[in-house]
Design a protein around this nucleic acid. Structure first.
Lengths: 274, 274
DNA sequence: TTATGCCCTTAACCTATGTTGTAGCCGTAC
DNA sequence: GTACGGCTACAACATAGGTTAAGGGCATAA
């Protein structure tokens, strides 16, 4: 196994960092990842990275900037499903799905890496640990969407809004995009409304209430959370769903277990239990 | 490669069938899957398969029956995230996540298979094609949840309800649990309300409207969809998100491509390009 | 400079949906 | 048989959040 080429030390990209929190990456894996991200593309704010209905093309990895994943109804009503942050993957299952059921639109200028979907297959075949880590990150995203579903279904406007702000604060903190309770939210109130299933007027009212109660401050796109604890309590925020507790390298442990290839001989006896 | 043991021809389980729609399973893979499902457990209706907050234990595969995946707020408000049908997996990422952020509760008597989470790791290591297919099915689930988010955020009560009914009809049809527009929905109106983010009273009103307009019929838990087209149009249902068009064995094709192990030597040149 | 467009803000009013309360049906327990 | 609990049904009323309308700030363009 050639050590990762000394002539170009792979740099730590956001994806790399994200996966690292669950695996101690080998040099070979690091090299593979940074090679994956070699083809870099820049796009301006408010441009589409993917459009609902179009055939999937490349897989993309967000390296820098913000985007939203959203779905629209034929009559124009729109729902933001999630915010796409550095390290997140767009269209990971291009190989499998025919066409996109959602759009991805940039909020800021972004930098993304592109590669053909086949490389995901290649990765599953050659780098099972990376594959598992990617599958994990997909599951985490689902958990976030499920929590948002709980918000839209069962939380009031005030609770939802508080919850989202705390969620973003937490997520941004883990990627060093927030410090000490304040961060930049490159988002109009319309987008916020579309993320929370509210009207733009009502989002405005709700933000006002949060400001009046002193929980947050807003100037322009800069938001400051004055009292995270209380805001979290207003939003009934329980960070369980973010699965941040990087379970002490569980995947690592599991993979480094005995190297036996799993048996596969049908109704084989033995080894079962627990 | 030992052929799948002749002495016990593996039976086609729902999971098996599900994955088959995206891969032509090899005998070895079939054997592995059916061995995975060897340890079978039965549970009565209205019992928990998983509880929010508890440590993950076994991975479970639904073989028969219905369940719901739901999340609750501390004050008791509850949101049903999805319906769990045969072939669906519960707690697939137990290895990675510390504790469950949702509960799973049976609606009918169910039959599930259980196995320890390590076997997922084993599977990633030894059966990349199965791993990819499982990751796919996770992505599909996310797509369903995202669509439900769109419903709760932007569809009216009538639209949501219509949409859900069509969704269930479609999903059940693919697993032969519905025929010709009617199926059994083992669900109280309370559960429906929790799935759609509505009050129980309003669900009742909404079902009445659907019945009055002749789009559906209800008797007990038996539901009949009289006019799928129109119901789908009321719900602005676009089945894109279900990703049913089993893209002509795309994964199959991708995997059966050249067998080369991916290179990994860092900034290697060449081979990049489509 | 004015014009234009985008966004935020607020007020007044409206409606879809929530709440409360009552009744009836049906199956099970005893 | 009666009592009970779980579920459906529906009426009357309450309200969170939607809609419409209007104005203001602040860029950028000409």
């Amino acid at each position: 196994m050639t050590r990762a080429s000394a002539r170009s030390v792979p740099e730590a990209t956001p994806l790399w960092l994200k996966l690292s929190s669950y695996l101690i990456l080998t040099d070979e894996e690091k090299a593979y990842l940074s090679e994956l991200e070699r083809n870099i593309l820049r796009q301006p704010p408010r441009s589409d990275l993917l459009q609902q209905g179009e055939k999937y093309r490349d897989v993309r990895v967000m390296r820098e900037g913000w985007a939203i994943r959203h779905k629209a109804l034929p009559d124009g009503r729109r729902q933001v499903v999630n915010f796409v942050l550095p390290g997140d993957i767009i269209g990971m299952y291009s190989t499998l799905f025919e066409s996109a059921d959602h759009s991805v639109t940039t909020l800021t200028a972004v930098e993304v890496a592109c590669f053909p979907p086949d490389r995901i297959v290649e990765l599953f075949r050659g780098f099972p640990r990376l594959a598992a880590a990617l599958a994990w990150s997909g599951a985490r995203e689902e958990a976030i969407v499920a929590e948002r579903l709980l918000s839209l279904g069962r939380r009031t406007a005030l609770e939802r809004t508080a919850h989202l702000i705390v969620e973003l604060l937490r997520r941004l903190t883990t990627v060093n995009m927030a410090d000490n309770g304040h961060f930049t939210l490159p988002v109009t109130q319309e987008i916020l409304a579309d993320a929370l299933g509210l009207s733009i007027v009502h989002i405005n009212r709700t933000l006002r209430r949060l400001r009046d109660s002193g929980l947050i401050e807003l100037n322009g796109q800069r938001i400051t959370v004055n009292d995270v604890r209380q805001l979290a309590s207003v939003g009934q925020f329980d960070e369980l769903y973010l699965h941040l507790i990087r379970a002490p390298k569980r995947l690592e442990r599991a993979f480094s277990g005995e190297e036996r290839r799993p048996h596969a001989g049908g109704a084989g006896e033995g080894r079962r239990k627990m």
